[in-house]
Design a binder for these strands. Structure first.
Lengths: 207, 207
DNA sequence: TCAATTCGGAAATGATCGTTCCCAAATAAG
DNA sequence: CTTATTTGGGAACGATCATTTCCGAATTGA
């Protein structure tokens, strides 16, 4: 529909304006949801971390689930931006695959590794009985797999990856690999070996 | 110490005997903890699934955490038995690695796949802030990695795996791979591609 | 200036959580 | 047979949970 009919009117909706940035609040909620999970993250914890009163939270979001899903979407947005920026530096298909594995390997280390991946956390904690969460997770994982497959095919087109490589099964293997690294990172604070694993995995693109 | 001094006495402790088998109850608790996670699994759900009253639960276990840890240990015991049985059928080191990957691939399919792995669930949900859970997870994962490394070295000793393979980094890669497959299985009910992934991964043991 | 609307924040609400208590039943020891 | 001990089972408990309500403050539109 046409909303421009209100051009003569205010640029903002009536009522008192919100005093915080939704995305800033979500960035803080992401930390809580990542390291505590959905159920262990109480509204009390969330409002403290986000610097809001409970009432304000419920004016911005319908319920706890809505906070979580918004945090999930924000998490995907932020992480995808990091990944895209790294991929742009890739010289060819093979190099882009390497850089992509590197992004996930680095995220699995140290504090960020212990904090964990929100996609995986959602899959593991909610995937079995929350259809809405499972659908979001499934979409995210499918897109990541498709990206890996596309990068492998790009490498085969530019000659950096041999055509004998099965793009489909190799993409899925690498997808499993990066999720596995993220799982290991939850309880192994110093798996610097993650980079060795990436190096070894790249041999799958050799012949 | 010498407990045989009570040989003349009862074979059982005094008091009313327990009317259920702990392991049977734990097997049912495992299902609840796997598909709901630690926090979402309420005592009410657990007692219903285990067929016990709340009072009886708390006579057998100190608290909810103790139920969970006992279920975790039972889960490891059962899954290790399945794995050991399969490994005994292995012809050589390479074949044993293949069978081990197959056990995890199969577990990541269908209902069992959606139910999920309790080790991974514990790592993801509790790993970041529960030291006791993290320690158990870390031990389990370390042992699994060591087993993979030992199988690779066995293959190198019997000639089924070339010595050029780096047992250390390859074992860790395969460890990540099987955990990743289990994560994918939570939201992808029919990843029959898991077997293709295993087949592709075996190429890492070729040269 | 005056409704209408929305936000911030604290207090209140009902539900559910994990846990304990209580009593009848079952067993061992004396 | 009595006492001590442990279990089964249900009711009861306090704590915490997610959510709503309420009121003063801030803004828009008339």
């Amino acid at each position: 529909m046409d909303n421009s009919s209100s051009l003569r009117h205010a640029v903002r909706a009536p009522g008192r304006p919100r005093e915080f940035e939704i995305d800033d609040a979500l960035d803080k909620a992401i930390v809580v949801f990542c390291e505590r999970g959905y159920h262990a993250a109480s509204i009390s914890e969330l409002k403290d971390a986000m610097g809001l009163a409970a009432g304000s939270l419920y004016k911005a979001f319908k319920d706890k689930k809505a906070i979580f899903l918004a945090a999930f979407d924000r998490y995907k947005q932020v992480r995808n931006a990091v990944l895209d920026r790294e991929l742009q530096k890739g010289a060819d298909g093979r190099d882009k695959v390497l850089r992509m594995l590197g992004v996930y390997a680095e995220a699995s280390l140290g504090d960020m590794g212990q904090r964990g991946c929100l996609v995986i956390g959602t899959a593991v904690e909610l995937g079995a009985y929350d259809a809405e969460a499972a659908e979001r997770v499934h979409l995210s994982m499918s897109l990541t797999e498709e990206l890996l497959r596309a990068l492998i095919r790009e490498g085969q087109a530019d000659g950096s990856i041999p055509p004998s490589v099965n793009a489909q099964s190799t993409a899925r293997l690498l997808l499993s690999l990066i999720y596995g690294l993220r799982v290991l990172g939850k309880t192994q604070p110093e798996p610097e070996q993650a980079y060795c694993v990436v190096e070894t995995a790249m041999k799958l693109l050799d012949r």
